[in-house]
Simulated assay, not measured.
Amino acid sequence: MFMAVVAGFFTFMTFAQQTTHAAAAEVRVVLNGKQLQFEQAEPVIQDGRVLVPFRKIFEALGFQVKWNSSLQQVTGTKAGLEIELTMNSSKATVNGKSVSLDVPPQMNQNSTMVPLRFVSENSGNSVSFSTKGSVSTITIGSSSVGAGSGGPGPAEKATPYVVSGQVVDSSGKPVAGAEVFADNQLLYNSNLTAVTDGNGYYSIELPPLATTWNMGGYYNLSSGDKELQIELESVTDKPFAGNTGAIRNFIMRPETSIGELYIYSDISDYFSESDIILTVTPIVAGKEGKPITTRGYNFPGGFGLQELPAGGTYKITAQYAPEGETPQPALVRVRYTKEYKESTVFTFSSFVAGIERAEIEVKR
Rank of each mutant, 00 (worst) to 15 (best):
T14S: 10
L36W: 08
G200C: 04
R295F: 03
E39L: 11
S126A: 14
S142T: 07
L81S: 13
P239D: 15
A92K: 11
G165W: 05
F346Q: 07
V162T: 11
V163D: 08
I57R: 00
G200F: 06
F351P: 03
P239C: 09
D183A: 10
A358D: 15
P104F: 00
S149Y: 13
P43W: 01
Q40H: 06
K290L: 10
P43C: 03
E233F: 04
R357C: 04
E205A: 12
V50C: 00
T212A: 09
L228S: 08
Q106H: 02
A310E: 13
L192C: 01
A321D: 13
S190Y: 05
A358V: 09
S134F: 00
V284L: 08
M215S: 00
A176G: 08
N88V: 01
P329W: 06
P105Q: 01
G48M: 12
V103P: 10
V284E: 09
L71P: 00
L331N: 10
P329M: 07
S190T: 13
V29P: 02
N298V: 12
T293E: 15
P152S: 02
D197R: 06
G259V: 06
G301L: 11
R335T: 13
G146C: 02
N125K: 08
T139E: 15
I258T: 12
I276P: 03
S164C: 07
D169W: 07
P154D: 12
E84W: 01
E205K: 11
S144F: 07
R28N: 15
T193M: 13
A330F: 07
R253S: 10
V162W: 07
E233R: 09
K78G: 07
L331M: 14
R28H: 11
S111F: 05
L51E: 02
T337E: 15
F12T: 07
P282V: 04
A210G: 00
K315E: 15
T14P: 00
T93W: 00
S144E: 14
G133D: 09
I316W: 09
E227P: 02
L51C: 05
V52R: 02
V135N: 08
G76Q: 10
A24V: 13
E339T: 12
A92E: 10
F299I: 08
G296E: 14
L101G: 05
S265F: 13
G8K: 07
S100K: 11
Q166D: 14
V167P: 10
Q328I: 04
I267C: 00
G224I: 11
F118W: 08
P43A: 01
S142I: 02
S265Y: 14
P53M: 06
R295P: 02
L101K: 11
N199W: 02
I57H: 01
S190V: 05
V280Y: 04
E361N: 12
I204C: 05
V74K: 01
T244C: 00
Y188Q: 14
S343A: 09
Q319K: 13
Y264E: 09
N122T: 03
T20A: 10
S130Q: 03
L228H: 05
E82I: 06
A178H: 11
M113F: 00
N88H: 11
V332Y: 10
G217W: 13
A7T: 15
N249Q: 15
